[in-house]
């Protein structure tokens, strides 16, 4: 399959690099300032080497990549909130050209889910977004396989940075600021970690899942438009104000604190929760875990790496395989 890859950050570059191994060809690769486009196949390594040297990826404009020749557009530009632009326009452009879209960018499906589905309904292309939730963990595919209609809740630890901070605080008896600085040194946390530690990132993932669950009960796009969820509907609380003493008290009682997000048909809730120290949800470090409550299957759990270029690219490429 021919792939157009928008975004040359950790995920975009991993998708482009790994694509040949999965039997695909990259025909366009763009970052926010330049692009390299070649219907016969882009030399990905050379383009990324140029970028690493501080030069443009190629001679083309980013818009040329969007207009290029591909079967599926991989949208891996940074997640934006509100109108989810420019990601949403990229999705629209590809679908209007009857091309498939695989999202790693959470914005379009977290903030404009029904619109994305409308565009998809009018297109010969399809939209998949496994990589938007839980990195390498196949959450959407599992929910889909199990039948979203029969899934009542999806919950889990969906942010590696917040989990790293909480599990280090608990294990070492350190305070938030200390552990955050350490996480930043290790590259686990961004210089501005608010997206992660305030729960926004986990909330976006849960919003996407809540949309999937609600969509299962809808018979039409009109209905979906009525019930779709956005970040503004989510109840979100972060971990910034949790002192070390709270984790100590929890530990004395055989518990710990995790930033847990939960998506149900009622909505989305993200916040620090008390969980059993040896329970399913108390994964440590940057690891993520997702629990699915199913009408007949009961409780299922899948754990894995929730972030990282290659990890997330594996989910993107799994989606591409679904399109074949």
């Amino acid at each position: 399959m021919k792939l157009g890859v928008l975004g040359a950050g950790a995920v975009g570059r991993s998708v482009a690099t790994l694509a040949p191994e999965y039997g695909h060809e990259v025909t366009a690769l763009a970052d926010s300032s330049a692009a390299v486009v070649d219907a016969g196949g882009v030399d990905v390594d050379a383009a990324l080497a140029r970028k690493d040297a501080g030069d443009p990826l190629g001679d083309a404009e980013p818009g040329d990549a969007l207009a290029g020749e591909y079967d599926a557009l991989v949208e891996a530009t940074p997640t934006t909130l509100g109108d989810a632009e420019p990601g949403f326009s990229h999705v629209r452009a590809a679908l209007e050209r009857d091309r498939h879209v695989v999202l790693a960018n959470k914005g379009p499906v977290a903030e404009r889910y029904a619109e994305v589905r409308e565009l998809e309904a009018d297109s010969a292309g399809e939209v998949y977004f496994e990589a938007t939730v839980g990195g390498a963990i196949p959450v959407c595919a599992t929910v889909d396989d199990l039948g979203a209609k029969h899934v009542s809740a999806v919950r889990g630890v969906l942010n590696g940075t917040a989990n790293f901070v909480l599990s280090r605080m608990a294990a070492e008896g350190l305070d938030y600021d200390h552990v955050l600085a350490e996480a930043q040194d290790l590259g686990v946390a961004e210089a501005d970690p608010s997206f992660d530690v305030e729960g926004t990132d986990a909330a976006l993932k849960c919003v996407i899942l809540a949309n999937v669950l609600r969509e299962a009960d809808c018979d039409s796009l009109d209905e979906l438009r009525e019930v779709e969820v956005t970040l503004a509907d989510a109840e979100v609380e972060g971990i910034r104000d949790i002192p070390g003493s709270a984790l100590e008290l929890a530990a004395e009682d055989g518990r710990t604190v995790r930033l847990v997000g939960e998506a149900t048909r009622d909505g989305v809730n993200v916040g620090p929760r008390l969980v059993p120290e040896n329970g399913t949800l108390s994964v440590t470090g940057t690891r993520n875990i997702v629990e699915i409550d199913h009408e007949y299957a009961g409780e299922l759990a899948i754990s894995g790496r929730g972030a990282g270029g290659e990890e997330t690219a594996s989910a993107v490429l799994a989606d591409v395989a679904r399109l074949e």
């Binding site: 002192p243 929890a250 009682d253």
Partner: peptide, 17 residues
């Protein structure tokens, strides 16, 4: 169980289980 390592009147938060 109360844990107020910084003592009362401090800016730091205390916790209680």
């Amino acid at each position: 169980d109360l844990s107020a390592p910084a003592g009362a009147g401090s800016e730091a938060h205390s916790s209680a289980r």
